[in-house]
Amino acid sequence: SPEEIKAKALDLLNKKLHRANKFGQDQADIDSLQRQINRVEKFGVDLNSKLAEELGLV
């Protein structure tokens, strides 16, 4: 269901964000992850996106 997909995506992105902060990645990478999280919260996951591929939806 779209809600489950959204939850999985947010979980994955939050893990990536945590790792980025923990290991001191570029601020641009961290900002990009934050924008992705905001986009998923607002609009859900686009099944044509790279994120959908990472989640194994495509």
Rank of each mutant, 00 (worst) to 15 (best):
S1V: 07
S1E: 07
S1F: 09
P2R: 11
E3F: 08
E4D: 12
E4Y: 12
E4K: 07
I5S: 05
K6E: 02
K6F: 03
K6Q: 05
K8L: 13
A9P: 00
A9V: 08
A9I: 09
A9K: 00
L10K: 02
L10D: 00
L10W: 00
D11P: 00
D11V: 10
L12I: 12
L12F: 13
L12R: 05
L12G: 01
L12N: 03
L13S: 00
L13R: 00
N14V: 10
N14P: 00
K15I: 08
K15A: 13
K16I: 06
L17Q: 01
L17W: 03
H18A: 15
H18T: 11
R19F: 14
A20K: 03
A20M: 13
N21P: 02
N21L: 15
F23G: 06
G24W: 05
Q25L: 15
D26Q: 09
D26G: 11
D26S: 15
D26N: 14
Q27T: 07
Q27G: 06
Q27L: 08
A28N: 10
A28Y: 10
A28D: 11
A28Q: 11
D29S: 14
D29N: 11
I30G: 02
I30H: 03
I30L: 06
D31K: 09
D31W: 04
D31Q: 10
S32V: 09
S32H: 12
S32M: 14
S32I: 12
L33A: 01
L33D: 01
Q34R: 14
R35P: 00
R35K: 10
Q36H: 06
Q36G: 01
Q36R: 04
Q36T: 08
I37V: 04
I37G: 00
N38Q: 14
N38T: 13
R39L: 14
R39E: 15
V40I: 12
V40G: 00
V40A: 02
E41M: 13
E41C: 11
E41G: 05
K42H: 08
K42Q: 13
F43P: 00
G44A: 02
G44E: 01
G44H: 01
V45F: 04
D46Q: 08
D46Y: 05
L47F: 08
N48H: 11
N48Y: 10
S49N: 03
S49A: 03
L51D: 02
L51F: 07
A52C: 04
A52N: 02
A52R: 03
A52P: 02
E53H: 12
E53T: 09
E54R: 05
L55A: 02
L55W: 03
L55G: 01
L55S: 02
L55K: 00
G56D: 05
V58K: 12
V58I: 12
V58S: 12
